[in-house]
């Protein structure tokens, strides 16, 4: 089996993640889509690390995980704040700001 298959899987996951951002209305699900994108990236990094025989790629993936964890905290905090004020977690309800 070619290692490229891993990259293909990652690409598909990444695209599904981004489509989630565009299509879903529940902000938490949208956010999960972003997490999926980050995870897909990690798979790419790990696979490239193996191709290059360079463990740095794994370290990069590790950093991404840590950053993603921090991002999740902030993101969920914002979502909760919005939910408390509006009783809705739909991204479409958040559109007071427009021209």
């Amino acid at each position: 089996m070619e290692l490229t298959n891993y990259l293909g899987l990652a690409a598909i996951l990444f695209a599904i993640g981004s489509a989630t951002v565009l299509l879903r209305r529940n902000s938490i699900v949208v956010f999960m889509g972003i997490e999926l994108m980050l995870n897909a990236t990690n798979l790419v990094l790990v696979t490239f690390a193996r191709m290059h025989g360079d463990i740095t790629g794994q370290l990069l993936a590790f950093f991404v995980m840590v950053v993603a964890a921090a991002e999740v905290v902030v993101g969920l905090a914002i979502i909760i704040t919005i939910f408390r004020a509006r009783r809705s977690a739909s991204v479409d309800d958040v559109n007071l700001l427009q021209s």
Partner: peptide
Amino acid sequence: LLGAGLAAVLLTVIGRAT
């Protein structure tokens, strides 16, 4: 469409990676 397009582009780019 955009999701599919993204997948297509990434797959073409990545598919030749060995």
